[in-house]
Design a protein around this nucleic acid. Structure first.
Length: 891
RNA sequence: GGGUGUGUAGUUUAAUGGUAAAACAUCAUCUUUACAUGGUGAUUUUAGCGGUUCAAUUCCGUUCACGCCUACCA
């Protein structure tokens, strides 16, 4: 077989992916084997593949492929997420381009557009994952809004409602007065704005002059009309909604206001002075006006002190009837007018220039208005409690564990989850309002009608009389069920699949959604299945560019993953991502990493070409050097397999990859193959050839989870195979022990060989010129034939007496290796080098001596540590003596 | 502002209470018969300060820098 000198990934990748698909190697059904399950973090239907997905899914594929090769029943379930907010925004934009406004459509019409959009774009990202080599069971592909998942969501909502965990409540939302919709926090952009700070006079009601204590630091304002408090505000137009004034109980300068009542300027409403530590003593005058309907923090104060709430705005941002003044006028117009009116009324102490941050709508660019609205909430206390302990006790493990802290912190300070969204795209809240007030919650309208009849006592109610809540559920309210709902565990509890695949094994995701998603899945897992949803969570880093910036469309710094695959091959890109992607650390992505990956592909390819290019002579006996090499490599292989297993157990995937990388490149290619390689154009013996091929096969099996394509290509090229014999369903060899002695002896030999090669390089002596080698010290002759072959040595002997003539010498541990050089030696240079070595060793000796001379060290340190220091001292002394003798000899 | 995490060669990472390791990059050198997408070799490191200890990169405190979460201050 003729093989090209370079590996060309695009030739083989699609071919093998197709082969795997056609043979159903990705599919999983429950059977007697141990299951290994991963559910994919479902990408948005709006999304296209980005580098974060590449990293995340590469890791999942590595884990799944490895589990499969360990003989487990591996099941990787793919799917997508409906992403309420993002998708609805995309659809609204698309319609806008066609000149259609969302408000012109009915809910059903809009949903039709949204489904159309989803069908068109929703699958793109999954198709892209196939290019990466993802071994998902595609028949199982789920979608958070498909029938099974939707039913699960509604059932869970009803269940939680009946348990009393879901309630309706008022909450401050970001209101867009132009789009007439609530926005999520993510859709609000804060901008610095130059505004004014208005200082308003709030006169005391029924002022009888008591309250002043004359205490130090107390500041009392008074004028002809009496005493007053000064309140600083950026929004004077909201005074119509004021229902209290608040001071800090520790604020001495305002102590005199405690327990008093004050009059809202212009409005003339009498409001109480309340006290709360929330107020910043240093800001303005330390007096805060409280407008519970129009400020988030004021709302909290309102709740706490049971204040009246006056909503002074209409939905479009004009002043409402409730305000009593300026009714119908726009909020910004009123701000100008009220300044004048306050001034004229003598109610404005002063005005200062002030810069603050104001929220704008991302969509309409108008100033958002905090607004109270009715929302659905899920109580978190119980769920947080059941989700915290398993993680803290490491029953469910986080990698890296530092995220346990973050997790606990969030659960300890958890607030109830607002699960309603003012959107159409999503699961509509299954709450139905009765004509005469009140509501019922049920999975279907029919069930709702039954409940409504019971509740109202009206047997003649019809479905049309019920009005379903307009809002839909937060997307995470469906994703938190993902590991359960994918196996239909909500609708069909205890079914065969959920029993077999749940709990899943590993979850691979980013730390940025630890609360949104991971924590909530853990809650749902324990609440609905009574068990953890996954045993381990692997947090990947965030992929950044090489300057450390997040990859974003606006910066244009994100490479197109498909172009990268085109350029370096999927294996090369996977490898490039994994080489520097330890758990939880951000990866600074650089194309050079993929280049390294591609180079590795090429190395593997060429190693294969070499081996396959040898001619085998069946009659040839195995040479001694080959026997030694094959015996050694078996041990080296076992050692690395154990190392890799250990890395995987600790989820150190990039380290596992580095271990295989070095095994292949350094140990196998640079050492082993050079050891067994026959002389130029000579044949190789059969025993060595066969075992070399078998090593090669083991190596590509170890590499397969990381680089699925090239390894399948070579697996099939080693020999003709049965159609069902794919590397991806083969078993990787196990190793439990290895011979450390064999390996360490070879390490010494390798050092000697490298040292001799180095002598040649430094002296400019050709590798073809054979040397003789003499040794002193604790040398083992076992690997002589290897050293002779790789260092071109014609004779190895113990140096019984001093050697005549110029010699180069190297120290390997305490063994001294000497090479007679004839005339090839530069005395001055050689002496200088040895003197430098002596200088270093003497410095080393001083530090060791200092330590050993320290009585406290000898008394307190562990005996083996002291013993080790003594040995270091002896070794260093002996080395120095040898070097000094060598210098003498050169003179 | 509050909380939390992280600082180790130029870069990305590893390790240890006992003289800090690897990969890439850089430089030098080698056109030796699989691979110049190769070989050989060299250079370079514990953020600052203080403490505990015989001994600190490791443990503790603090400063600085950066990241993340959260609240954004009327």
């Amino acid at each position: 077989m003729e093989l090209a000198s370079k590996y060309n990934p695009s030739d083989v990748e699609s071919k093998w992916y197709q082969y795997w698909l056609e043979n159903g190697f990705f599919k999983s059904k429950p059977d007697g084997r141990e299951p290994y399950t991963i559910v994919i973090p479902p990408p948005n239907v709006t999304g296209v593949l980005h580098m974060g997905h590449m990293l995340n899914n590469t890791i999942q594929d590595i884990l799944v492929r490895r589990a499969r090769m360990l003989g487990k029943n591996a099941c990787w379930v793919p799917g997508t997420d409906h992403a309420s907010i993002a998708t609805e925004a995309k659809v609204v934009n698309k319609l806008a381009q066609e000149g259609i406004k969302k408000t012109d459509l009915t809910r059903d019409q809009f949903l039709e557009h949204a489904w159309e959009w989803t069908h068109k774009h929703g699958g793109i990202i999954l198709e892209q994952l196939k290019k990466l080599g993802a071994s998902c069971d595609w028949d199982r592909t789920g979608f958070t809004m498909d029938e099974t998942r939707s039913k699960s969501v509604l059932k869970v909502f009803c269940d939680l409602y009946s348990k009393g965990l879901i309630y309706r409540g008022v909450r401050m939302v970001n209101w867009d007065p132009q789009a007439l919709t609530a926005l999520s926090d993510e859709e609000v952009i804060y901008k610095e704005e130059h505004g004014k700070l208005y200082y308003l006079k709030y006169y005391l009601a029924e002022d009888n002059g008591t309250g002043e204590t004359g205490a130090e630091g107390e500041i009392v304002h008074r004028d002809a009309k009496g005493r007053y408090a000064v309140v600083a505000t950026t929004r004077p137009e909201t005074i119509m909604g004021d229902t209290a004034m608040c001071i800090n109980p520790k604020d001495t300068k305002n102590r005199w206001l405690s327990g008093k009542k004050v009059i809202v300027p212009l409005v003339n409403r009498v409001i109480p002075v309340i006290e709360d530590e929330y107020v910043d003593i240093e800001f303005g005058t330390g007096c805060l006006k409280v407008t519970p309907a129009h400020d988030v923090n004021d709302y909290m104060l309102g709740e706490k002190y049971n204040l009246q709430t006056i909503d002074i705005f209409n939905d479009n941002g004009s002043i409402s009837e409730a305000a009593g003044l300026y009714v119908g006028k726009d909020r910004f117009e009123v701000r100008k007018q009220i300044e004048i009116d306050l001034q004229n009324g003598g109610l404005l102490e002063k005005v200062e220039a002030y810069t603050n941050k104001v929220g704008y709508s991302e969509r309409t660019n108008v100033v958002i208005e905090p607004k109270l609205s009715m929302q659905w909430f899920l109580k978190m206390e119980h769920l947080a409690k059941i989700a915290l302990e398993p993680v803290m006790k490491d029953e469910l493990k986080f990698y890296p564990p530092k995220y346990k802290n973050t997790y606990r912190n969030w659960l300890d300070n958890i607030k109830d989850w607002c699960i309603s969204r003012q959107l159409w795209w999503g699961h509509r809240i299954p709450a139905y309002f009765l004509p005469e007030g009140g509501y019922v919650v049920a999975e279907t309208p029919e069930k709702a009608l039954e409940l409504a009849k019971q509740k109202s006592g009206n047997a003649y109610l019809k479905i049309e009389d019920l009005r379903q809540d307009e809002d839909c559920l937060d997307t995470w309210f469906s994703s938190w069920l993902w590991p359960i709902s994918l196996f239909d565990g909500i609708n069909n509890p205890g079914n065969e699949e959920i029993k077999y695949y749940y709990p899943t094994n590993d979850l691979v995701t980013g730390p940025d959604i630890i609360f949104f998603w991971v924590a909530r899945m853990i809650m749902a897992g324990y609440e609905f299945e009574g068990q953890m949803p996954f045993r381990n969570v692997y947090f990947t880093g965030i992929v950044r560019d090489k300057l450390g910036r997040k990859m974003s469309k606006s910066l244009g710094n994100s490479p197109d993953p498909l172009e990268l695959i085109e350029k370096f091959g999927a294996d090369g890109v996977r490898m490039g991502m994994m080489l520097s992607a330890p758990a939880g650390n951000d990866i600074l992505f650089d194309e050079a990493l993929c280049e390294q990956g591609r180079n590795f592909n090429n190395k593997i390819w060429n190693a294969f070409r070499l081996v396959k290019g040898w001619n085998v002579d069946e009659k040839l006996a195995q040479p001694e050097y080959a026997k030694i090499a094959t015996d050694w490599f078996q041990e080296q292989l076992n050692k690395t397999i154990i190392e890799i297993n250990d890395c995987f157990e600790k989820y150190r995937i990039s380290e596992a990859l580095m271990a295989v990388y070095k095994l292949f490149w350094d140990e196998f290619s640079s050492w082993y193959l050079e050891m067994v390689k026959p002389a130029y154009q000579q044949p190789i013996d059969k025993a060595t050839y066969d075992i070399t091929l078998s090593y090669f096969e083991v190596l590509i099996k170890l590499l397969h989870p990381f680089m699925p394509f090239i390894t399948e290509e070579l697996y099939q090229a080693i020999k003709d195979r049965d159609d069902k014999d794919s590397i991806m369903v083969s078993l990787v060899p196990k190793a439990t022990e290895y011979c450390e002695k064999t390996i360490s002896k070879m390490e010494v030999s390798k050092e000697i060989i490298a040292g001799i090669r180095n002598i040649r390089a430094e002296k400019g002596i050709s590798p073809r010129e054979a040397f003789s080698m003499y040794y002193k010290g604790d040398y083992c002759e076992k690997n002589n034939s290897i050293i002779e072959k790789l260092a071109n040595i014609d004779k190895i002997e113990e140096a019984k007496s001093a050697l005549n003539g110029a010699t180069a010498s190297i120290m390997v541990g305490t063994i001294e290796i000497m090479i007679p050089l004839g005339n090839n030696v530069n005395v001055a240079e050689e002496t200088k080098k040895m003197e430098e070595e002596i200088k270093y060793l003497e410095g080393f000796l001083i530090s060791v001596d200092k330590k050993l001379g320290n009585e406290k060290f000898v008394a307190n340190a562990k005996p083996e540590v002291v013993e080790n220091e003594r040995k270091k001292k002896a070794d260093a002394k002996s080395k120095i003596a040898t070097l000094k003798a060598n210098i003498e000899k050169l003179k």
